[in-house]
């Protein structure tokens, strides 16, 4: 399972799939990572400072409305990270690109942190608004379940030594987990009607947040997206290097 030089590819794929080659991937990520880190830093700093210092209080929620600049983007990324893992797992299963499997592995801890941020900010927001840190509301509950799925996924990666076996099994788990995550979402909805407000970003203007809050929120979301991309790209590179080092070491030991 050597990653790079030993396997000369018969035909060189071009376009998007050519980045499934680890060396090319590393080259590309090296080039675009500084931009991603920069964009993430700028938009996070601008968005959060804007949100924290320069937005008015909500007439009902007071200053707690400022939590939205962390809560909504992190919740969004928590779900999207899982979705990205699902896509990467599918690519691994179908096309057997190692980079894809490693990208899924790299995204999981980022998703965990995003889920934690969403849960934490939700709890401190819920305390003054609903009078409780935690309620078994459908949205909250499904996030907690998502968190458990992340934990299981990471634990499975850690538990299996052979990297290809681990990639295969975690991909299967990711697929099955996605189905059950959606099922749980509906089950939980059925089980308890919630306190949580509807989506804050729906196109339906009626229940949407006002413009003063909306623009800095978009900046923060962009910041979280770029942060996620930068982290995942960087971590994927780390995983590729670790695997390559291990492969070289194994070859050393053999000679």
């Amino acid at each position: 399972m050597s990653l790079t030089e030993d396997t000369p590819t018969p035909k060189r794929p071009s376009g998007f799939w050519s980045y499934a080659n680890p060396v090319k991937f590393l080259g590309l990520s090296e080039r675009i990572l500084p931009a991603f880190w920069g964009l993430a830093a700028v938009s996070l700093i601008v968005g959060l400072i804007w949100g924290f210092f320069f937005t008015p209080d909500d007439f009902r929620q007071g200053s707690t409305v400022k939590i939205i600049y962390l809560h909504v983007p992190s919740a969004l990324m928590a779900i999207n990270a899982w979705f990205m893992m699902l896509v990467a797992s599918l690519i691994w299963i179908v096309r057997r690109h190692h980079v894809s499997a490693l990208a899924a592995k790299a995204a999981a801890p980022v998703g965990v942190v995003m889920t934690l941020i969403a849960l934490f900010t939700g709890a401190v927001w819920g305390q003054p608004m609903w009078g409780t840190w935690w309620a078994w509301d459908p949205r909250l509950t499904s996030f907690l379940i998502l968190f458990l799925f992340y934990l299981g996924y990471i634990a499975l990666w850690e538990a299996i030594e052979d990297p290809d076996t681990a990639a295969d099994l975690t991909s299967v788990l990711c697929l099955v987990g996605s189905v059950f995550a959606v099922l749980s979402r509906y089950a939980v909805n059925f089980w308890n009607q919630g306190l949580h407000q509807g989506a804050s970003l729906s196109l339906d203007k009626e229940e949407n947040v006002a413009d003063v809050f909306y623009i800095p929120l978009l900046v923060c979301i962009a910041g979280f997206v770029f942060l996620f991309l930068a982290l995942v790209l960087y971590r994927t590179g780390t995983e590729i290097r670790l695997r390559r080092a291990r492969a070289l070491q194994a070859r050393e030991a053999r000679t």
Binding site: L70, I117, F120, T121
Partner: peptide
């Protein structure tokens, strides 16, 4: 609430 959310 706000400060702890941002801090954490």
């Amino acid at each position: 609430a706000v400060l702890s959310a941002y801090g954490v």
